[in-house]
Design a protein around this nucleic acid. Structure first.
Lengths: 205, 205
DNA sequence: CTCATTGGATGTTTCCAGTCATATAATAAC
DNA sequence: GTTATTATATGACTGGAAACATCCAATGAG
């Protein structure tokens, strides 16, 4: 082996990471191999030493983005007492920061619709990650009986993701902020209504 | 005038309609001028007699799709007694049919994320239509006091749209159906919980 | 010294928005 | 009813952008 053992792995990851950012920012067809490699500080000749094809990269990048999201949620669950976890999650998800920086945010609101149109292989990989997200919410975030947890997790995710999609359409002004606030209230009040947990009424900003 | 008076207007609308279907099916860059015109039974030379540019068409097609959606909702409101309107809406929106046929469905779950990346002009046109949808839900569909209607309308839409996005990622199997069902329950139970003055029945877990 | 990795250059293909001279078809004028 | 008029449609053409993929000389780690 020339170059250190980890060198290639590191380069590989840098490419995947940058791709995942660009894809979330610009969509599934929003960046080409050449530009991407340039952004990573390489030239695009070496690309095919790392990936069989562009699609292989895209799948990896999707997975990477989803994994980072799940990782983030896991940390929230870890660092927060059970009854406050949902509020903590919503506070990190339904923010202007997340809305305005899709590149570092959740992949579903940015790429969901496009994923649904990709090849079955790509779509299924994404669906598996989505199911992991649901499990995570149901098991680690929501403070409700397991009986209803899965269903409620799905609805919670749907509301959060739909809110981000709508807020991004609305831009970044007052109207958009209003949408974010409505989503927050909806998620938290639904949770408050179901178990005996109380309040958590965030002030709209 | 040669050709009948309405001829051009009709052709124009056929183009817009077909474009709106294809865009929802394949995404904002999913079809080119030439293919589109062919699908309408024309050649692509004449395109620029109808539209200044491709973008102008895209904006019209977006508007068309949104208008059709609003129209559909208006009819539901018209044909249904107030207390059943939301259920009727959800029953038409969160169906496998809608999930599996984006081309004829709501434009937000199919195009929302891509719209958010388009030019400000395009995005703002879409945002205006989104606001109309919210007004429609708040004023004609929800059976709640005006005070909270707008906020609740936003949340209701977010949940419905997010549910469709997730369900499409999940494909069309059992998992996907489960997501649809969860979305339905969430929208309807929230509506049932709110008008009742306070938090009804806190059932301890 | 050796050779895997890198990166600059290049090939080739595909595709697409937009233009224009020409042909066609329907109405208005006579 | 015939002709003149003109809006609409045709289809080939353009110029260029962008994309994926491959090759090979140079590099630098071991």
């Amino acid at each position: 082996m020339r170059y250190s053992k980890e060198h290639k792995a590191e380069t590989h990851e840098r490419i995947v990471k940058q791709a995942s950012v660009r894809l979330r920012e610009r969509g599934a067809h929003g960046i080409g191999v050449a530009d991407l490699m340039k952004e990573v500080g390489l030239t695009h000749g070496g690309f095919y030493a790392h990936f069989d094809s562009r699609e292989a990269l895209v799948i990896e990048a999707f997975n990477y983005a989803m994994d980072r999201g799940n990782e983030r949620w896991r940390k929230i669950a870890e660092d927060t007492p059970p009854e406050k976890r949902l509020a903590a999650l919503v506070d990190s998800y339904l923010t202007t920061t997340h809305r305005d920086d899709p590149g570092r945010g959740c992949a579903v609101p940015s790429l969901g619709a496009e994923i649904a149109r990709e090849s079955p292989k790509t779509r299924k990989a994404f669906a598996a990650k989505l199911e992991r997200m649901i499990d995570m919410i149901a098991g680690q975030i929501l403070d409700v009986p397991p009986r209803t947890a899965r269903k409620q997790a799905m609805a919670t995710l749907a509301t959060m993701m739909g809110t981000v999609v709508m807020a991004r359409i609305a831009g970044n002004g007052e109207f958009s902020d209003e949408i974010l606030a409505a989503g927050r209230d909806a998620v938290l009040s639904r949770a408050a209504a179901k178990p005996a947990v109380k309040k958590a009424r965030p002030k709209a900003h």
